[in-house]
Design a protein around this nucleic acid. Sequence first.
DNA 1: AAGTCGGGGGG
DNA 2: CCCCCAGACTT
Length: 381
Amino acid sequence: MSKTLINTFSKKLLTWHAASGRSGLPWQGNRDPYAVWVSEIMLQQTQVATVLERYPRFMKRFPTVKKLAAADIDEVLAEWAGLGYYSRARNLHACAKQVMHDFSGKFPHDPLLLEQLKGIGRSTAGAIAAFAFHERAPILDANVKRILARLFAIEGAVQDKAVNDRLWKLAQDLLPNQPKDMPVYTQALMDFGATWCTARKPVCISADKKCPFAKDCQANLSNQVLALPQKTVKAKSPEFDCDMLLIRSGNFVLLQKRPSKAIWGGLWSLPESPWRPRSEKGHQTAHGSKELLAITLPGENIADLAKSIRGLKSGNRIKHVFTHRRLWMQIWEANASKALAFFSPNLKWVPLAQLGRYGLPQPIKILLQGLSLVRGDDLKN
DNA sequence: AAGTCGGGGGG
DNA sequence: CCCCCAGACTT
């Protein structure tokens, strides 16, 4: 039934791209596998507008896979701070080491080998192979899933295995025959999904532009475009409270390195209490230093720290929204002596002027800026 | 198959 | 307020 479209899709898409594709993005037209790889990782679940500012900075700081592999993970996380999903930065660093040690510093061409590297899944492997090496490997990101679900009127949630398998098969079958077309074709797919076949306002609805697939698209023909791909119901995100210590000593502030494999993993932040589920009936805030004595950090107890601090005062209360969690952070402020004994390597007095060298969670970075503890410039580099 | 990972853009 | 995004990894 869709045989015609299977055979004509890539050519039509390439024609569309020549007229209406995006251009001028900093990572486009670059066939350096390292540059391609960094852009693909940075763009995972992150919009182009955000990456636009951060990508050139990252490439300037770490121009080659060799330099990235040789860097300290804290430097990489500091450069990544604010982009979110910090496992991407940890995996990026680990992958750079893999490429240096297992592949003599050169990315493999085979998408199956690329997929074995840290942080590279099937879709990202396909993108790197197509952009950097002209391999006939498909991608299946959110754009492509949406395009294919509509073109072929595929019912069911895209995360369902059977549906996902079918989408991958289609993505493979639609590839252009000529390997030389792979970079532009892959870019065209992303461009078409991001700018024309969008989730909420595809051009076939607004009707000021003419979709080249209007007569091929099963969803369009059956007036189901906005219903595909099928959405799944998401649970409401749970809410939590926690306390954070903002302890200063002169021009120093006390930071805690967060455990990896958790939220804000590997970043430096303020010493933090365990999270408490937010109850319906209020009493969400810890009142007074009594409860603060019970503050523990993941994997360590800092009751001694809390006991040693005099004059804790409640400061800002910050609400922060994650993908599936909401967190209220109560800040407790005090001055203390730097002579306080800390035996944990996860606690560190940091000069305010050097905060920019540390990867801080975005709300903490904003907090410190808002309190004018540091000039904005100190946090930008 | 479902949960876990951030943060910002835009309706 | 909501949904969405050049996903991968863990359980």
